[in-house]
Design a protein around this nucleic acid. Structure first.
Lengths: 341, 341
DNA sequence: GTTAGCACTCTTCTCAAATGAGTGCTAACA
DNA sequence: TGTTAGCACTCATTTGAGAAGAGTGCTAAC
């Protein structure tokens, strides 16, 4: 069977209506809602076809139809009409540029959750590949050194190091010089054991303390900061009855709380290559908690290799147009934010 | 009417049973469960008295009794028998001492949630009153300075400052000296505007940039870091039907997500003065989201004025003995953790 | 003071009937 | 050949009545 224009229109009408109401859609409704001027009987025939083709499903004999995953997919790929949208309160966000990256991300997720009424998440950009810009060791008190590391993209990391014996100013200066000359400009991943060994040798083996300090600094550098994820609007899932039953709600809340579990909703396949936006419908999700949800993700790029992902999680009958539009807008703003500088 | 020993025993039995089952408790059950050797009829008479006195409630005519807030309160104040308990996996936590405070706190809430099966939260210790230990400004690149501040209790705070014109080494050194000599040893709250003005003067007004830098450093210091709260086990509320209806669940999830809202579950009244543990039952909670919950809090003290609060949120029929016992244990361990050093 | 017994209350369960939304199919129509 | 009116049919949902069951309060007797 072929997908002609009329079937397309009917499918679109069914989906639109179902997105609105969340109730199975009957033939009479479609007959009245569309401008096709067809009787419900005709619609019924077409609907039978659409069902046979797998685009819609009848929950039970005497109910209307709801879209299948395949139906949603068709809608998202072909019928959807997502324009960039103004996001309410977006102005507030722009003010946040100079603030800490972390705060900015938190603002974005909140904004998104409020605007879309779905659960949202955002991952902090990965700094793995980034280069070391600056290392500084300073003495805080007799038994503590402070190591501060700045990475390209101006990400700051620090650690307090406990030392058994005091290190004098001269040695501290030497250490700082050594660390900076040896490591500056290197990406985290380029630092290896032999370099560490060489540094220790250059620092002079006379003091075991210095060796320990170097070890600590290196550890700080390579500290695999677990994927930072911020979430918001988790409670929005209660707005959608199909997600709000105990079973589902509990699973989703858990997933959003144990943020590590959210890692795999970022799947980075080739879909949405051009736009940077990807849509996963129901069973298309790898994450088992999300099998009854749809997830829309966008990859943002702050430059300097700092890429992160924004995700929106809602029911299958998510307002895809709105969500994709909003994500496009936000993505654009984020991409521009740092690049303009 | 007076509260005699028999009434007390019966009330205790009712509460114990209700904590277990969550179902209204009938007279026959009590007659069999206690060692009083009384018939159900006698129990019924006593129960009528207890109801009149306000300790128990009858949801409807033909149901058993459930404890009222006053009944729980009596139980917690007089009948409860909370011993310190071993907490499962506690060993893992102890390993975390050397790690970052933040990570330790996260471990504790998780542990607690797993152990108690309630929703848990912990606030990071307040550093308001703490003294400044060390300030360091360093140049990251031509247009950025990095300010690092260490506060007593070894809390580190930092900020990247953008400068319009480069500050040379000499001035940077001067600034560092100035900041440290002027501010070291002061509590955050002791820093006032006139001191800032004097410092700017001493730094030499010839360069507006230096004034700006001082402003930024001061701002970093006084940055009222919003109360940091970590939560865990939010999904546990689904285990208790009386909290798991949409209305309640949504409210609670929201409260736990918007962590600022959790601030007012810490009420610090005189109850539990000696033990540092406080119990709020149902309507005793100020927080409107928690009116159907019981909340148990403990104040921990890491020394150096670093006090924080642990909170456990569950249904009214919370296992108070267990929760209070667990909190006592954890509190003790936390209190000892840093003090021993 | 305690207890057995009984009438009474009120929730919950069950089941059948009524309701109603929506379909599939057939026959007629353009 | 495509469209439509009409009707029988299906099945989830609602409704109401009755039965069951848990538990009480009260009375009278021990």
């Amino acid at each position: 069977m072929e997908m002609d224009e009329r079937k397309t229109k009917i499918l679109q009408a069914i989906i639109r209506n179902y997105l609105d109401t969340g109730e199975p859609v009957g033939s009479r409704t479609i007959s009245k809602d569309t401008d096709l001027n067809l009787s419900s009987a005709t619609i019924r025939n077409e609907m039978a076809d659409l069902e046979e083709m797998g685009y819609i499903i009848q929950p039970h004999t005497s109910a209307g139809r709801i879209p299948s995953d395949k139906g949603y997919r068709f809608y998202v790929d072909t019928l959807m009409d997502a324009k960039e949208r103004e996001v309410a309160d977006m102005k507030d966000m722009l003010l946040d540029r100079q603030d800490k990256l972390e705060d900015m991300l938190k603002t974005v997720v909140k904004l998104l959750a409020k605007d879309t009424q779905y659960a949202t998440m955002i991952t902090a950009p990965m700094t793995h590949m980034n280069k070391l810009k600056f290392i500084q060791l300073s003495r805080v008190d007799a038994s503590h050194l402070l190591a501060v590391v700045v990475i390209e993209g101006n990400v700051i990391r620090n650690r307090l190091i406990e030392v058994a014996e005091e290190i004098d100013d001269e040695n501290l200066l030497k250490l700082n010089m050594l660390l900076n000359t040896q490591l500056n400009g290197l990406a985290m991943e380029e630092i290896n054991l032999s370099m560490v060994a060489r540094m220790k040798q250059q620092a002079g083996i006379h003091s075991g303390v210095i060796g320990d300090v170097i070890d600590e600094v290196i550890e700080t550098l390579s500290e695999d900061k677990d994927l930072e994820v911020y979430t918001s609007g988790t409670n929005n899932i209660f707005k959608y009855p199909e997600l709000a039953d105990h079973e589902n709600a509990s699973r989703l809340i858990t997933a959003f709380e144990e943020k590590e579990l959210l890692g795999d909703i970022i799947q980075n396949d080739e879909s949405g290559e051009e736009t940077g936006i990807q849509v996963y419908i129901g069973g298309e999700n790898k994450n088992t908690s999300m099998q009854d949800c749809s997830v829309v993700t966008a990859t943002y790029d702050l430059g300097d290799g700092m890429k992160g992902t924004i995700g929106i999680v809602g029911p299958r009958r998510m307002d895809y147009d709105k969500v994709v539009g909003t994500l496009k807008t936000i993505k654009t703003k984020l991409d521009d934010l740092y690049r303009k500088e």
